[in-house]
């Protein structure tokens, strides 16, 4: 056989190897992983839940969510949301329980993702005690907390409310009896309001 033909055949094989090497490396560099999408979506949902809990109304929640998605799509080259729908945007507050729940369904290029963010505070017990030195009366409220991934990392009280962790998801709040509501905030910034003193 002619040497040139053999060499041409071999170079064609080498060319195919070179192209496939280049293509594979290209793919490896520029794949936008699903985990990155999920991280951004969870952040957006939490940010929206925080906005909902702080404004106390669900009127502008969708606009806020949309602005978040626009910013995320502007700066992340691989992030694209095809469609979204707010499944749940709930605020509930009573003397026994306080709930913030934000659930959004996102349609992505790789499939559907449901991001849920919630914080539930439940009152177990309320007792009163009087400071013998000042004569002021305080509430001691025992609560349990729940979020979508178990127990919150931390909870703080807003204003003159003190929060301490006891054990096994039991938290103790101390506040002056004069307060009508107790505002609590978790480490993500989500706020819930507990009504005390009867409603």
């Amino acid at each position: 056989m002619n040497y040139s033909i053999i060499a041409l055949t071999m170079s064609l094989i080498l060319l195919i190897i070179a192209i496939s090497l280049q293509e594979n490396s290209f793919e490896e560099f520029y794949i936008w992983p699903m985990e990155a999408d999920k991280g951004i979506l969870d952040t957006i949902t939490t940010n929206t839940a925080t906005y909902l809990s702080r404004t106390g109304t669900s009127n502008n929640v969708e606009i806020f969510l949309l602005r978040n998605l626009e910013i995320a799509e502007k700066y992340n080259y691989g992030f694209r949301v095809l469609k979204y729908s707010i499944v749940n945007a709930t605020l509930y507050s009573s003397c026994e329980k306080a709930i913030v729940n934000m659930t959004v369904m996102y349609d992505m290029l790789w499939g559907r993702y449901c991001a849920t963010v919630f914080l539930v505070i439940e009152v177990v017990n309320i007792t009163e005690f009087r400071d013998p030195l000042t004569g002021d009366t305080y509430y001691k409220i025992i609560i349990t907390c729940l979020m979508e991934r178990g127990v919150p990392r931390s909870i703080i009280g807003i204003g003159s409310v003190e929060v301490s962790y006891s054990h096994n998801n039991i938290w103790i709040l101390t506040c002056p009896k004069s307060l009508k509501t107790v505002m609590l905030e978790d480490w993500r910034g989500i706020r819930v309001e507990l009504k005390i003193g009867g409603d």
Binding site: A36, G39, I40, T43, I44, T46, N47, T50, Y51, S53, R54, T55, F64, R67, N68, L69, I71, A72, K74, Y75, N76, R188, G189
Partner: peptide, 12 residues
């Protein structure tokens, strides 16, 4: 990765 905000803000 750019995140659009935190703590209920739009601060990327």
């Amino acid at each position: 990765i750019t995140i659009p905000g935190w703590n209920g803000t739009l601060n990327p």
